[in-house]
Amino acid sequence: MASTTREKVGWGTANTLIVVLALVPVLWIMSLSFKDPTTISDATFWPKKWTLENYRGIFDTSEFTRALLNSIGIALISTLIAVVLASMAAYAVARLDFPGKGLLIGMSLLIAMFPAISLVTPLFNIERALHLFDTWPGLIIPYITFGLPLGIYTLSAFFREIPWELEKAAKMDGATPFQAFTKVIAPLAAPGMFTTAILVFIFCWNDFLFAISLTSTTRARTVPAAMGFFTGSSQFTAVTGSIAAAAVIITIPIILFVLFFQRRIVAGLTSGAVKG
């Protein structure tokens, strides 16, 4: 399709506009994090006085480091469990015909559609009764619940792409259904698993609602929630700088996580399986 100069210019302008719109707030936060507390509200885009004070400040107390640890632990465990469970469920959805399959898919969609805020109060009460409130499992369990629909949908699409004959071949080669899944199907669905892992991890990492509602101390409070409790170095200093620094810090793991897994998402891994 030959595109005219006009089209190129049009698309170029639109793309630039969107990228700028998306990146300005990020740059702004970074700029804020490097501003000296006294110049924080000077209304300039670039800091006049560069400082690392904000970063030093948040690492001074255990409040932030503990939250960072909680965030990493909870997000990783939730992602791992959600991906394992989702891949099994998605495999069943993609390959088997069982009674209640439509219901299962419908239910998982329903979970994804429920506004999370409406579930917070019941969850709060349930978790208090079960002594899960303010613990790691108290956050991991809801995260898995909300990560699963996402995972099942993404993964079942990937499983459907894998030729069924590969599984039959594995069966003929003497594999049990579980061996066929772990040794043949799962390695081929790896790109799908990594994609799902990234999506679920980002969801857990960025969640604020559950983190603020289901925790009360630093025991299980994750970074997004902990940031709300930030105080300035003294009663009279604005916390803006510390929050900006924390926001920059928590973006780093997610960038690393995505960059690391993105390399595994190799398209066309199944090429060569079938046909000539």
Binding site: E165, K168, A169, T270, A273, V274, K275
Partner: peptide, 10 residues
């Protein structure tokens, strides 16, 4: 068994 599509493990 040999399959029509060969079904080799890629």
């Amino acid at each position: 068994m040999v399959f029509q599509s060969y079904a080799l493990y890629p």
